[in-house]
Amino acid sequence: MNKITAYIATCLLVVSIFTACKQERKLPFYGERHAETVRDAAGIEKIDTVYQTIPNWSFLNQDSIVTTNKATDGKIYIADFFFTSCTTICPTMHRNLMTVYNEFKTNPDVMFVSHTIDFKYDRPHVLKKYAKKLGVDGPKWLFLYGSKDSVYTLAEKNYLVAVGEDSTAKDGYIHQGYLVLIDKDRRIRGAYDGTKEEQVEQLKKDIPVLLAEYKK
C-alpha cells in the first residue's frame, strides 16, 4: 500500500515538474534598447527597459490617400520593402506573404504594410494596379509610396532592412527580403526572410503568439 502511494506521489511530482517547465513562448524584441527610470501608477520609481519603436510616418497609399501610422494603431502588422518592377526576390516574397494574408485576412488585429523603394516609377496608381493583380483589395494591406529619403531612412534605421539604389543590379535597386513583424506598441518582434518558405511558416506560427500577448 505504502509503495503504491509513494509511486503515485512520484508520478505527480514528475508531471508537475514537466508542466512547470513548459513556459508560454514569447517573441523576442529586436533593435536597440536602453534602461529608463519610470514611475508606476502608485508613484514608486523603478527601472524599465525601453525598446526601439517605429517612429511616426506619413505616406500615400495605393488609393493616393495620405496614410499615417495611425492606420496601424491597435494592430500588429507585417512590413516589407519591395518595388513593382522587381523580377528577383519580390515576386517570391509577395507570393509567400499572400499565403499569410489569406490566412489572417479575416483577423481585424493584423495588417500588412508594403513600402515601395522605387520612388521614381511606383506612384500610387502603379501600386494600385500591382495590388489588384496580386489579388489584394481593401485597406488591410497598404502599399505605400514616399520620398526616397523618408522610405530609405525608415527602412534602414527603424525596420533594420537594407535598401538601396544600384545601377549595376538588374532592376536598378537592391534590398533585403525581410518581412518584419511589428507589435501593437510599434516594437520589432520578428524578421523573417520572405523568400524562404520555412521562415514564412514560422511567421504564421508567431502571429498568434504575439496576438496572445495582448489577450489578457
Binding site: 523580377t87 519580390c90 517570391t92 500591382y130 489579388g135
Partner: peptide
C-alpha cells in the same frame, strides 16, 4: 523563372 512563375508553374496572380 521560378520567382515569378512559381515552383509548380502556377504563376502569380495576374502578374505572371
Amino acid at each position: 523563372c521560378q520567382n515569378c512563375h512559381g515552383e509548380n508553374g502556377e504563376g502569380l496572380g495576374e502578374l505572371a
